[in-house]
Amino acid sequence: MGSLAEELQRLEAEARERVEQLREKIAELTGQLSVTEERVMRRLDITGSRWSVPGAEAVLTLWAVISNGDLPEYWAFHIERERERLYPHTDQHNYELTA
């Protein structure tokens, strides 16, 4: 019986330790979110600036991509999409001139 009680105490101690680690992580993330919110609000509230929703979303997306370290991959994706938008037909070389 003693070993079962000891095992239960050990598991409870581990659970308390994990809960404390989660609390610390939540506090850390909440603090980071507050700093990010403050930076965003300062950027969007510059005197005389007018932001459309798409423009603000674009800036926020770039901030997120840069802070996550994904800028090279995102930029390659962006360039490819822009190329597809500007030059939608990849088989243009197959067309014959009629003039």
Rank of each mutant, 00 (worst) to 15 (best):
E17Q: 11
E12W: 09
N94V: 12
A13D: 15
E96Y: 06
L4G: 07
R10N: 05
L8V: 09
E20C: 03
M41Q: 07
H93I: 12
F77K: 09
A27F: 07
S67T: 04
H93E: 06
D45R: 04
N94W: 11
S49T: 03
I46V: 14
W75F: 15
A76H: 04
Q21G: 02
T36K: 06
R42E: 15
R83H: 09
A5W: 03
N68W: 04
E17F: 12
T36F: 05
L97W: 11
E7T: 08
E6D: 14
E28F: 13
V59P: 10
G2A: 14
W75Y: 15
H93R: 12
S67Y: 01
A64T: 08
Y74M: 04
W75A: 14
I26T: 05
Q32M: 07
E57A: 12
S49H: 03
S34D: 14
R42G: 01
W63P: 01
R83Q: 10
D70F: 06
G31L: 06
V40A: 11
A27I: 03
A27E: 11
A58G: 06
L44I: 00
M41S: 08
L33E: 06
A58K: 13
E24K: 14
E14I: 11
R85M: 13
L97D: 07
I66K: 13
R81Y: 05
R81G: 11
K25R: 12
A64F: 10
R18T: 04
S67K: 07
Q92V: 13
H89Q: 13
E28W: 08
L29R: 02
E96A: 08
E84T: 08
D45H: 05
T30E: 15
G31T: 00
P88N: 04
T30G: 05
S3Y: 07
T30I: 08
G48I: 00
E28L: 12
P54G: 04
V59N: 04
D91R: 06
A76Y: 01
V65W: 00
E20A: 09
L22V: 04
I26E: 05
R42P: 00
T61S: 11
P88M: 14
A76C: 09
L97S: 11
R85W: 06
L44F: 14
Q92N: 08
E17I: 08
A99G: 07
E24L: 13
R85Q: 13
A27M: 10
E20S: 07
T36G: 02
G2P: 00
L60F: 01
R39Q: 15
G48W: 00
E28P: 03
A13E: 15
L22G: 05
N94G: 04
E28K: 14
Y87M: 10
R85T: 14
R85C: 13
R85N: 12
A56M: 06
I46E: 15
A56Q: 02
A13C: 09
R39N: 15
A76N: 08
R16A: 14
Q21C: 03
R39D: 15
N94H: 13
L62T: 03
T61L: 13
V59T: 03
I26W: 02
A56H: 02
L44M: 15
V40Q: 07
T47N: 03
D91G: 03
E20K: 03
V53R: 10
E14K: 15
E38N: 11
G31P: 01
V19F: 05
I79E: 06
